[in-house]
Computed example of a mutant assay.
Amino acid sequence: MATTNEAPDTVTIADGISKRVLSTAPDSGSASSPPSYPTESHFAFDFVVRVATTGAVLDDSRLHPKRPVSLYSGRGFQIGFWETCLETMRPGEVAEFAVEPEQLGLFPVQYRKLRDYLLDRKSAHCCGMAGVRDGGGLGYADLDDLLAKPQRLLFEFHLREAKLPHEFRKEAWIMRPEEKRAALPQLRQEGNDLYKAGKTADAAARYTEALAMLEDLAAMERPQDTKWLELDKAKVPFLLNLAQCQLLLGDNYQTIRLCTEALSREPDNVKAVYRRAKAHAAVWDVAEAKQDFSRAAQLDPGLAAACDAAVRDLTDKVRERERLEKEQLRGKLIAG
């Protein structure tokens, strides 16, 4: 990380943790006034971890594709003192934090999960201290050594971005239930606007996000209770909209699955029947397509002409396909 030649004084920010600014943030304002970050502020940062005595680099997040690293304050980030450090920084600042061994007893165990994430590695060994007690270690020799003999470490952070809660859209996993409920109409509207603008894949992402939130909310309720049923029914418009997106994107089997799921809640939903019919036709499932087109015409007579035309078109395509297959087979027999 870029540093300056300046060497500002080291200051203690917590018991066993001191800070030294390596590069001040642009437009940092008054250096004497610390920044103020409320709970659920978002930090995006790069980091380097070094052994203080030798300077050996234990890790450098800039070498991993999953960067910068993200942290939401007050949401239980396992390496708690990292949050303490970042909350003293301003966006663009680079600072080094010296952490004494007595503060690092569990750091190797806590850090292993983050390293697994950065390396896209799924741990095959036991979790946490249970794995260590069973002799399996942490899966990394350097972390095993640190666990056995804690050393003073230097953590260099480059705070790329810091946003207050009102400045960004929260990820679903940090939302409270009431926030998820409030987000659903907005996601639907955003999806509809994106769809109208021809941004089908982006619209599908909004509908998918909403369905995941509904799943999370339903998981908090007793199945088949009134609130659970309301949340389950609320999935239908998102299932239908997502099915339409997938139909346009050519994912016909996904369209069939989504429409079938919607029909399990509303058996007479004509949009679900008609969209599933078109998806069945696209994958040459003739019998199912004809059945759904017939059903759609019954549910909405206004669709009868379109359904009849679709069935005729599908029948003609099947006949043409069969004719070509017969000609190919005849050619092979003659050639043989």
Rank of each mutant, 00 (worst) to 15 (best):
A7N: 14
P8R: 01
D9E: 12
T12M: 11
I13T: 02
D15W: 07
I17P: 03
S18A: 12
V21Q: 10
L22M: 10
A25T: 04
S30E: 14
P35S: 08
S36W: 04
H42K: 15
F43L: 10
F43W: 07
F45N: 00
F45T: 02
D46E: 11
F47S: 14
V48S: 04
V51N: 12
T53E: 15
V57H: 08
R62C: 02
R62H: 07
K66L: 15
R67H: 09
Y72A: 13
G74K: 03
G76M: 07
F77W: 13
F77L: 04
T84C: 07
E87V: 06
E87D: 01
M89Y: 06
R90N: 00
R90E: 05
G92H: 06
V94I: 12
E96L: 13
F97E: 00
P101G: 04
E102N: 11
V109E: 02
Q110W: 15
Q110A: 13
Y111N: 08
K122Q: 12
S123G: 10
H125E: 07
C127Q: 13
G128Q: 14
D134Q: 14
D134S: 14
G136V: 01
G137T: 03
L138E: 04
D144E: 02
D144R: 07
D144A: 08
A148S: 12
A148I: 01
F157Y: 12
R160E: 11
K163D: 05
K163P: 00
K163S: 11
P165K: 03
H166Y: 05
K170N: 04
I174Q: 01
I174N: 02
I174L: 01
R176N: 03
L184Y: 09
E190G: 04
E190N: 12
G191Q: 06
Y195W: 09
K196Q: 12
D202V: 03
A203L: 04
Y207I: 03
E209Q: 13
A210G: 15
A212T: 07
A212W: 00
L214E: 05
L214G: 04
A218N: 07
A218F: 08
A219G: 03
M220Q: 14
K227R: 15
L229Y: 04
V236Y: 02
P237F: 15
L239E: 03
L239D: 02
N241S: 13
N241T: 03
L242V: 04
A243C: 02
D251F: 11
T255E: 07
S264H: 14
S264E: 14
E266F: 02
A272I: 05
V273N: 10
V273F: 01
Y274H: 14
K278I: 03
A279M: 04
A281Q: 09
K290M: 08
F293M: 11
F293I: 09
R295P: 01
A296Y: 00
A297R: 03
Q298H: 06
P301R: 07
G302W: 06
A304Q: 14
A305I: 08
A306I: 02
A306S: 11
C307K: 03
D308E: 13
A309W: 02
A310K: 09
V311R: 09
R312H: 13
D313I: 01
L314A: 06
D316I: 02
E320K: 13
R323N: 09
R323C: 05
E325H: 08
E325I: 02
K326I: 06
K326P: 00
L329V: 08
R330V: 09
K332N: 06
